[in-house]
Computed example of a mutant assay.
Amino acid sequence: MQALRSRLIGLHLPPLPSPSSLSAKPPCFSLSFRHSFSHSNKQKPNNPNPCSSHHASATKSPQTPISDAAKFVRTVLFVPPGVEPDEVTDDMILPGSNIVLGPYAGDAKIKEVEFVKSSGRPKDCPRDSRPEFAMLGRSNVGKSSLINALVRKKDVALTSKKPGKTQLINHFLVNKSWYIVDLPGYGFANAPESARMDWSAFTKGYFLNRETLVSVLLLIDASVPPQKIDLDCANWLGRNNIQMTFVFTKCDKMKGGKAKRPDENIRDFQELMRQTYREHPAWIMTSSATGLGRDELLLHMSQLRNYWDN
């Protein structure tokens, strides 16, 4: 356990809670999938929560003691289905993240990708049963660049120096089996007033009603200090029990002067998140320019997807 603590501290991230402090009153909420649903005529498990299947069993059986080590792991790390907190070892954690690799991780290679459609309303999105991951973030966070980096093809997703270019829900089909969904960026100042007013209504409708949504990848710009709009978005997702992963972008960027390093901004953001989450959501550091975190993020997505589709 000391090795796990030392490794995370080595990433210059927030000071970790001691096991003895975990009995204190927890903050507001933790994440889980919103519901289960029928897929291919097969009922999903009663607890389709890739981040806390072991949490549910602990809640139902309070008489079963949980070790201090397990409490520490489940508070700090993202422990996927098939892994018990006491089983986690240092070499199971994906580099640059708090994500534990479990038995549901599978083939993460992207062999082909195709644009399917743009939708102006959630009800116009594809209606098949394929799982999907939604990319969400401020309009200049590097969302399109990350999509292009993941699929290793230029211009699959539209990139522009003008924030707010994506104003529709765009579905990209990967390996003919799952979707990457590019959602409109929030917080862009140059978009038409009508687009700014409509963003909340139709994007939130997508989150609340999209049964095939496996997880939201909430992109956070690590080159700048924590932004209130990102914190508000994360807290809205949390209040609505929508599973998410924090994807820190631009981790290669170093601002001049006295600006903080990306790892310091990540530490500050996570410290704020700790005030509202019982267990910290999954997070990972990435850079579209250098490829940092690409393979690890795809592995993480594969284990969420495989569990969802199990």
Results as ranks from 00 to 15, higher is better:
K60Q: 14
K117W: 00
F33P: 11
K60P: 05
S52K: 08
Q63I: 01
S97W: 01
S119Q: 03
C28R: 13
N47G: 02
R34G: 13
L31A: 09
H54I: 00
P62N: 04
K109I: 03
S53F: 02
Y104Q: 10
R74L: 09
F72H: 09
D68S: 15
S21V: 00
N47D: 15
P85H: 03
G96F: 01
K109D: 14
P65E: 12
I99Q: 04
P26Q: 03
G96C: 03
F33T: 12
H54M: 06
E87A: 14
H35M: 06
S23E: 08
G96L: 03
L101W: 00
P95V: 00
S40M: 09
T89Q: 13
I110F: 04
L77V: 05
V73N: 09
Y104R: 08
L22C: 12
H39A: 12
I99D: 05
S61I: 01
S20F: 07
G102C: 11
I110E: 10
P81W: 00
S23P: 00
L31R: 09
G106C: 04
L101R: 12
N47V: 12
Y104W: 13
P81N: 08
V76S: 05
S119R: 04
S36T: 05
H55R: 15
P85K: 01
K111A: 10
P27L: 06
S32M: 09
L31W: 07
S67N: 06
P50Q: 06
S118K: 11
F78C: 14
K71N: 11
R34A: 13
C51H: 05
S57N: 10
P50D: 04
K109T: 14
P26S: 05
H55E: 12
V88G: 03
Q43G: 04
N47T: 11
D68W: 06
T75M: 00
V116K: 11
F37T: 11
P103G: 06
D68C: 05
D86F: 02
S53W: 00
N41C: 09
N98F: 08
P81Q: 03
T75Y: 00
K25Y: 02
D86I: 01
V79N: 05
K117R: 14
P103Q: 02
S23G: 14
S20N: 11
K117A: 15
P85G: 05
Q43T: 07
G96R: 02
P95Q: 01
G82L: 02
S32Q: 13
A69I: 03
C51P: 00
S30Q: 13
S38V: 11
C51M: 11
H55S: 12
S23F: 06
P26E: 01
H54S: 13
N46P: 02
F115V: 08
K109C: 12
S67Y: 01
P103R: 04
H35Y: 08
K44T: 07
F78W: 13
N47K: 10
G102R: 06
A108Q: 09
A70T: 07
P80L: 03
T64V: 14
T75N: 08
T59W: 10
